[in-house]
């Protein structure tokens, strides 16, 4: 392909990728309450955002959900990766576990969401704690986060040389001591990157939250979606811009950590 059309398509793609986010950002500082004409710069929508209780509640829900589910998923996912390393189980078992871990990565979100709805239905019959609420959202988010944490930590574990373990054994280090003083410090960047990835995925998730949320557990993306249906306000722009900036910042941070691996 000759060079000029290729370059044009490349730049056009970049513009297409950034145009929508840019539009949201520009209108979040536009004075006009109605309509889309430019009426001058203002930060008042960001200020009124802070006075809107429903938005603050959605932001708090998103943050709480992301923090709690990330902590649980990071612990479970890291332990899972460590447990499967040098797995003492037969090959077929190993393959089964790998499939299990890969399900949330390859299956479309909506199927995951639907099966989680079914699971919550059963759990609700057992105990009312599993009512569609933030608790249900946490369970749902952890379910897809575990896999991503495990995969990231695993890729780090694979790159560790087996010699460190042998060296530690030669020096009569106990298994626990070896884990605490050698393995854990070495995989920490991987664990952090996995946690950051899980956090971003949780903040960004729409479909699974949408299927599992109740009236009291509205998250940011769900709030934005439903306010689109109710009619747009400049606060929506401000909120969307903040959500975008937060995820981009976290994602770049995660990138940084992964790069150091």
């Amino acid at each position: 392909m000759s060079s000029l059309p290729r370059t044009l398509v490349a730049y056009a793609s970049l513009i297409l990728l950034y145009l929508p986010s840019l539009a949201v950002g520009v209108y979040s500082v536009n004075k006009a309450r109605f309509g889309l004409a430019w009426r001058g710069f203002t930060l008042s929508w960001y200020k009124s955002l802070l006075e809107n209780e429903r938005i603050l509640e959605a932001a708090w829900n998103s943050l709480l959900l992301a923090c709690v589910s990330t902590v649980i998923a990071t612990v479970l996912g890291t332990a899972l990766a460590l447990g499967l390393e040098r797995s003492p189980w037969p090959k077929s078992c190993q393959r089964l576990f790998d499939t299990l871990i890969n399900i949330p990565v390859v299956v479309p979100d909506i199927i995951m969401a639907v099966s989680l709805v079914l699971a919550m239905g059963v759990l609700r019959a057992i105990s009312p704690i599993f009512e569609l609420s933030l608790g249900a959202l946490i369970l749902g988010h952890v379910t897809f986060q575990i896999s991503f944490v495990t995969l990231v930590v695993r890729s780090r574990l694979v790159s560790l040389s087996p010699e460190t373990r042998e060296a530690a054994q030669d020096l009569f280090a106990s298994r626990l001591y070896h884990f605490w003083r050698v393995t854990l410090p070495l995989i920490t960047p991987g664990v952090l990157a996995g946690a950051m990835l899980a956090f971003t995925l949780s903040l960004d998730d729409f479909i699974i939250s949408f299927f599992l949320h109740g009236p009291e557990s509205v998250t940011m993306p769900i709030y934005i979606f439903s306010s689109l249906k109710r009619g747009l306000t400049p606060e929506t722009n401000a909120l969307s811009t903040l959500t975008l900036l937060a995820t981009v910042f976290l994602a770049l941070l995660a990138e940084r950590l992964t790069r150091r691996l």
Partner: peptide, 8 residues
Amino acid sequence: NVVVRAYG
């Protein structure tokens, strides 16, 4: 976020 970009 997908929702935000569609909104854009």
